[in-house]
């Protein structure tokens, strides 16, 4: 089929009315989807622009020093984002620290034939359901069930390993470490589901070839399968990191909302999104601008993660 303009000598097919209807539907559909696709891009530009406009007074007042200032004082109208950037990055890092080995391990376990399919399927299904739980439910569960349960463990960490700066404070009701553990549970399904899909979609000949060459199961998994699936696994980790960075509700409930940079993981902290969720309702003037500035920082942070993920993924794909 060519894109030539209607010729005086139309073919029989082109002359038929049905063909013309179909073609006009095709063209219109393409136009509509095209404009929608552009529209989505425009919405992002629009949001960024409005964030910038509202954040402008804070950007002018504090500049980049905002990033390294740890005051958040609505009385004196002095604001800084350091504790929140620190809390966001550290909680996400800790969550990944737990979720990545666990998630990739479970993904391997579920794709290798360790289990009979009739046991495997329900497990895989359950894991995917975990992703569907709203974050406020995770927050409530963390608050009323999980944190009280692990409290003795955290106290043990403090009593026995208090000489390590990370565990140097007495754990209170809410702190960064406990919140990060809940966060890890929240991002696990993302890592498991995508890693598992990648591992199952690997060509069977890879596995067969490795076994054929006399490799053990361990060697096959670590030296053949994981490197081949690396781009997918890294992608899943980056998606999970994206979720962890932006997670709001659960962290606002669990992290303790203390405006401080404390080396100890057992101390209460605060994150960019939890601060916004907490203070937006009653904020006005410079405080509101500063909250928008924080939102902008969060956007840039997420953007960086995505760019980094793209680079990593494409690099690993070249290695293959």
């Amino acid at each position: 089929m060519t894109n030539q303009p209607p010729h005086p000598h139309e073919t029989l097919l082109e002359a038929s009315t049905k063909f013309q209807v179909v073609r006009s539907i095709d063209q219109n559909f393409r136009r509509v989807t095209f404009s929608l696709a552009i529209g989505i891009g425009l919405i992002l530009v629009w949001i960024t622009y409005s964030l910038l406009v509202i954040a402008l007074p804070a950007i002018q007042a504090f500049g980049l020093g905002f990033l390294v200032d740890s005051t958040w004082d609505p009385v004196k109208n002095i604001y800084g984002a350091l504790p929140h950037v620190y809390g966001t990055v550290l909680s996400s890092f800790l969550a990944l620290l737990f979720a990545v080995p666990l998630g990739v391990g479970v993904a391997i376990f579920l794709t290798e034939n360790f289990l009979a399919p009739n046991i495997l399927q329900p497990i895989a299904f359950t894991i995917e359901l975990l992703a569907a739980i709203p974050s406020v439910v995770y927050g409530l569960w963390g608050l009323f069930v999980f944190l009280p349960t692990i409290k003795p463990l955290l106290q043990g960490l403090n009593h026995n390993f208090g000489w390590i700066p990370f565990f140097s404070t007495e754990p209170g009701g809410r702190q960064l470490f406990g919140a990060s553990l809940v966060l890890a549970i929240m991002i696990l399904p993302t890592i498991i589901a995508i890693s598992r899909d990648t591992l199952t979609s690997l060509p069977p000949k890879l596995r067969q070839g490795a076994y054929g060459l006399g490799a053990t199961r361990w060697e096959t998994i670590i030296l053949v399968l994981l490197p081949a699936a690396l781009s997918g696994i890294v992608g899943s980790i980056m998606l999970a990191l994206g979720r962890a960075l932006g997670e709001t509700m659960a962290l606002a409930m669990l992290v303790g909302n203390a405006n401080q940079v404390n080396v100890s993981w057992l101390a209460p902290a605060s994150t960019l999104s939890s601060l916004i969720a907490n203070q937006f309702g009653e904020a006005s003037g410079l405080q509101k601008s500063s909250l928008f500035y924080e939102a902008l920082i969060l956007m840039v942070l997420t953007l960086l993660v995505n760019v980094f993920a793209q680079m990593l993924v494409s690099r690993f794909q070249q290695v293959e």
Binding site: D73, P74, V75, G172, G173, N278
Partner: peptide
């Protein structure tokens, strides 16, 4: 720390809303 609807607290942890305060006190 002054007088405001939110201030820079010298100590403590923050909880959202009266219900958050109540939950945290009851649990801790």
């Amino acid at each position: 720390a002054g007088v405001n609807k939110s201030v820079s607290w010298p100590v403590g942890t923050g909880a959202k809303g009266n219900e958050g305060i109540a939950a945290q006190i009851q649990q801790t």
